[in-house]
Amino acid sequence: SISSRVKSKRIQLGLNQAELAQKVGTTQQSIEQLENGKTKRPRFLPELASALGVSVDWLLN
């Protein structure tokens, strides 16, 4: 799922939720909701993929 991929990649990069949120241009709460499965397809998906160094396709599939 996107939530597990985001969380595992974030941890692999040594980032906390607030640091990832800053790179993406969103809030820590938005990252938390995404990782908890409350958000399925965030509006900041391209920025998120870029910050994590992955493709949008990788996040979604």
Results as ranks from 00 to 15, higher is better:
S1Y: 09
S1T: 14
S3D: 07
S3R: 08
S3L: 02
S4Q: 14
S4C: 12
R5L: 10
R5E: 03
V6I: 11
V6K: 01
V6A: 08
V6D: 02
V6S: 07
V6M: 06
V6Y: 01
K7T: 10
K7I: 13
K7H: 07
S8Q: 14
S8F: 10
S8L: 11
K9F: 03
K9E: 04
R10S: 04
R10P: 02
R10M: 05
I11T: 10
I11S: 08
I11K: 09
I11Q: 11
I11N: 08
Q12M: 10
Q12F: 09
Q12T: 07
Q12Y: 08
Q12W: 06
L13P: 01
L13H: 07
L13N: 07
L13Q: 08
L13V: 07
L13T: 05
L13S: 06
G14S: 05
G14T: 03
G14P: 02
G14R: 03
L15E: 02
L15N: 03
L15S: 05
L15W: 13
L15F: 11
L15Q: 04
N16W: 02
N16S: 15
Q17Y: 09
Q17S: 09
Q17W: 12
A18C: 12
A18W: 12
A18M: 12
E19R: 04
E19M: 07
E19F: 03
L20R: 00
L20D: 03
L20V: 05
A21H: 02
A21N: 01
A21G: 06
Q22R: 11
K23S: 08
K23P: 04
K23Q: 10
K23M: 15
V24M: 06
G25E: 04
G25S: 05
G25I: 03
T26M: 08
T26N: 04
T26D: 04
T26E: 07
T26A: 09
T26H: 05
T26P: 01
T26R: 06
T27M: 05
T27E: 07
T27F: 04
Q28L: 14
S30K: 13
S30D: 14
S30C: 15
I31R: 00
I31C: 04
I31Q: 01
I31V: 06
I31P: 01
E32R: 11
E32D: 11
E32A: 13
E32M: 14
Q33D: 15
Q33R: 14
Q33C: 12
E35Y: 00
N36Q: 12
N36T: 11
N36D: 12
G37E: 07
G37N: 07
G37M: 05
K38R: 12
K38G: 12
K38N: 15
T39G: 11
T39Y: 09
K40T: 15
K40S: 15
K40F: 13
K40Q: 14
K40M: 14
R41I: 15
R41H: 14
R41E: 13
R41L: 15
R41W: 15
R41F: 15
P42T: 09
P42D: 04
P42I: 14
R43T: 14
R43A: 15
F44K: 07
L45M: 09
L45D: 01
L45V: 08
L45Q: 01
L45H: 01
L45P: 01
P46T: 13
P46M: 13
P46L: 14
P46W: 10
P46F: 12
E47S: 11
E47N: 09
L48F: 02
L48A: 01
A49F: 00
S50E: 14
A51M: 06
A51R: 02
L52R: 00
L52F: 03
L52I: 05
G53V: 14
G53E: 09
V54K: 02
S55G: 08
S55R: 06
S55Y: 05
V56M: 13
V56W: 07
D57Q: 09
D57K: 08
D57E: 11
D57M: 07
D57G: 08
D57S: 09
D57C: 10
D57V: 05
W58Y: 08
W58L: 04
W58T: 04
W58V: 04
W58H: 05
L59I: 09
L59R: 00
L59K: 00
L59T: 00
L59S: 00
L59F: 06
L59H: 00
L60Y: 09
L60C: 10
L60I: 14
L60P: 02
N61C: 11
N61L: 08
N61Q: 12
